[in-house]
Design a binder for these strands. Structure first.
Lengths: 194, 194
DNA sequence: GTTAGCATGTAAGGAGTTACATGATTTT
DNA sequence: AAAATCATGTAACTCCTTACATGCTAAC
């Protein structure tokens, strides 16, 4: 639904697919998964949880242990049946949105729930995306009159190298996928509906 | 002034310090400098230009060549005296803000306008920041009950490696700075006001 | 001639951060 | 006892993106 906040929504759904959790726990998991740059803040997470609840994808778990352990109970969330369907549907979307900067990492984190052809498709899409970027920068650098002091050059070299490394990494993952492709490990709990 | 949009403001000021330019050109330069992820959009740039103009840091250049070469003239901007002062002041700020994710790269791009001690200070600050991050993730991974499937692990490994590489790079730059530190190349046009 | 790139803007809307508000529990 | 961490939320604000609106110029 939400085009842009798709990444967080996907992460929450995916993590709750593993196991029920409360907000604080979710935040830590998301930060471990993709918190290399910005850390997920409560101001983002809790409203997202509310929205997902209103959409019917998650619900609060009525606690078995008595929740009177203080005034503020921990609110544990779990996926509803609709939430599971929705997550399965998201997993099937293997188009450009799956390999943009915003979404690729979180997609990769839940690759175990997808089938091998989808994995390859997304990995290749991501790689193409990065290669286009590389081409663009290389072209601009050549013809454009760019700044060329030592530090600017270092910055550009390091940036270029990072992207090149990611391409190499993706290539390795793709090759692993292809060679393991025959003795296929069946996706865990997501059934092939389509 | 602006805490968060500081990065773009700094870039614009720095580029106009090199030479007067119009918006379209600025965008290309900024994108070459730090456009590895998101590309700077006009919706961000032009309002920023207006704000900088209103703040008195930049002004439009009355063109020497007759600007009647179509209805839409190119609006060339240059730094005012206040703009130069402001940029010089920004260059002297070598605190935490200079080495966060948002600002470090653009600071590095204009390192040639700073003196060597400031460069080392910022490089070391950035390195510490990344090392803290590394520690945090390593600690969380060990004690926390994290997901541990193949793809999550790959994602984490690659993320960790990227940050480690950046630390190595920074260390190299610091060493270069120290060894070249004695036969100092004087900062170009920024005078040491303080 | 038509595509691609040059060139400048605005309006609406989305996503996320910071700071605030509140309080319990565990560790040092 | 203090500090850290657990735990949930809200409101204001900022920045940015997308899509729209307009028109020229060079290359193929």
């Amino acid at each position: 639904m939400a085009k842009r906040g798709a990444s967080l929504e996907f992460a929450v759904l995916g993590l709750l697919h593993d196991a029920p959790m409360h907000g604080y726990e979710l935040r830590k998991h998301v930060n471990l998964l993709l918190g290399w740059t910005r850390l997920l803040s409560y101001g983002t997470l809790y409203p997202c949880l509310k929205a997902l609840g209103k959409a019917g994808f998650i619900e609060t778990v009525t606690p078995d242990e008595p929740l009177i352990r203080g005034k503020r109970p921990r609110i544990v969330y779990k996926l509803t049946a609709e939430g599971k369907d929705h997550f399965a549907a998201l997993l099937e979307e293997a188009g450009p949105a799956a390999w943009d900067d915003e979404n690729f990492n979180i997609r990769l984190a839940f690759f175990a729930s997808t089938d091998s052809p989808t994995r390859v498709r997304i990995l290749e899409g991501r790689r193409s995306r990065l290669e286009e970027r590389l081409d663009g920068v290389r072209t601009s650098t050549q013809r454009g009159r760019a700044r060329a002091d030592k530090y600017t050059l270092e910055l550009q070299r390091h940036g270029l190298e990072s992207v090149e490394r990611e391409v190499t990494w993706l290539t390795e993952l793709i090759e692993q996928e292809r060679s393991a492709g025959k003795g296929e490990d069946v996706p865990s709990s997501i059934t092939e509906a389509k």
